[in-house]
Write a protein that binds this DNA or RNA. Structure first.
Lengths: 251, 251
DNA sequence: ATGTGCTTAACTGTCGACAGATACAAACAC
DNA sequence: GTGTTTGTATCTGTCGACAGTTAAGCACAT
């Protein structure tokens, strides 16, 4: 059963949902130039997963979805396969598809893989970045700061996504971009949790300021080290949050 | 049209084809515990692509494939989507599916991404490897040496795949393993070309001997640096080969 | 020979239906 | 109250068909 976005909890508002949908579209429907039925379904359902409207482990009934989108089950199956490819959905053979349930090991692995790949592209960016590229990075950083001052976690998360997107764009590396996009999707729901911890946004702003400085100095080694530690910090914060949540659940 | 393996050129023999099929199966049908129609089709077609029986850019007619496998087009479409997910096939919307054509930039990106991720896991392996793990790595290395002495490029390639597989296994990192497997698939056809260059197998043996030594010494930093340079070397050799081939094509 | 427009055959996306597998629920045993 | 079996409703995998789109072939002009 799908909850309407109108009664969404603190994890989803219409604006954030729209951003989530755009993100899924960019990643999942990358090459689908024309509006495609399958892509539309995948984006909608994917955004619902990212925004927490469909919690991990919940059923993705293809009959129900086909009614909702007024199609047959064939496009639904394809859309679910697209989302499975991005790690958002589990489609075990002959069993009911479900929203993927990432465990702690998955999360650690994803953050570490992201760290390693961002190291690679940060070094490339530091070497080749133009003044225009720097300006774009600064703009996204400014958005992050503004969201921080406003205490708007959701806006902060999306500005942060934009910032890293700009990095992958500047590195001009399609393969790594694809992989990072996919990994991003799988942690999109968790990022907000991590950043909602007190002091986390401030810390993240500091980290990104230092990274920006390294880019300005064209210091590839430092940029790589910084972007790596940014991710390790984010992972630590997320682990702390999840540990606290597990504690709370026990009480 | 599908060529039979019996009239295959130097890029495919039945044994190598079987290995290729097993590889595709492991990656593409990872969680399909039961023998599945879709997985079977994907493995067969994927192996044909890797082995060069279906050259890059050739058509993958779903009607023809459905006749060949005696199924309807639905499982064929799913199998092609699985292979697209691994980068072996291009399925543009409303157009004919084709075998993917990796360009030079793709190849560079894939090798560099592989280098970055193998760096990550090599460090982990060096820190945590047991004597049993080392024994397995040595066994695969011995196979590589044997293939080198026998001048059997195909056997060398597959032993090399086993060696790296053992690395990802020892690192116990499912996420990175998945990514590396996927990247491996896309370059599987090219590895043989690279390694068929004179002196390349000898060089690769030397590189792997050093890596093994670093593991024995539990030297994470050195292991990471070595596995990285192994990949950079392999890329350089491949680029040299492709440049030579382009030259030959022009003449 | 080369390029251009039309015709037509072939292919893809989507559909509704059916067979077989799965998971839920109720009845039953302990 | 708990665990096990059985029955049933629901879901998935696959199919053949149809409509709309693509591209290959052919005639014709340059």
């Amino acid at each position: 059963m799908v909850k309407k976005t109108s009664d969404s909890g603190p994890t989803s508002d219409p604006e954030s949902f729209a951003r989530a949908k755009t993100l899924v579209h960019r990643i999942v429907a990358e090459r689908h130039d024309r509006p495609s039925l399958v892509a539309e379904i995948a984006c909608e359902v994917g955004a619902e997963i990212i925004e927490g409207i469909r919690p991990p482990g919940s059923d993705l009934n293809s009959v129900e979805l086909s009614k909702r989108f007024s199609t047959s089950r064939t496009p639904i199956r394809e859309a679910l396969m697209l989302l499975e490819k991005e790690g958002l959905v589990d489609v075990p053979p002959r069993k009911r598809p479900r929203v993927a349930v990432p465990d702690l090991q998955d999360i650690r692995e994803i953050y570490r893989a992201r760290a390693a790949l961002f190291e690679l592209i940060a070094a490339d960016v530091a070497r080749s970045v133009t003044e225009e590229g720097l300006a774009r990075l600064r703009a996204h950083f400014a958005e992050m700061q503004a969201a921080h001052r406003a205490g708007d976690v959701s806006a902060f998360v999306w500005s942060n996504v934009d910032f890293y997107d700009q990095n992958t764009l500047l590195a001009n590396n399609r393969t790594v971009k694809r992989i990072l996009d996919s990994l991003l999707l799988r942690t999109a729901r968790l990022r907000r949790l991590s950043l909602s911890q007190p002091g986390r946004m401030a810390r993240s702003c500091d980290d990104h300021a230092r990274l920006l400085k390294a880019y300005e100095d064209r210091d590839a080694t430092l940029a790589a080290a910084l972007i790596r530690s940014n991710h390790i910090n984010a992972l630590a914060a997320l682990e702390a949050f999840l540990a606290g949540e597990a504690e709370a659940a026990r009480a």
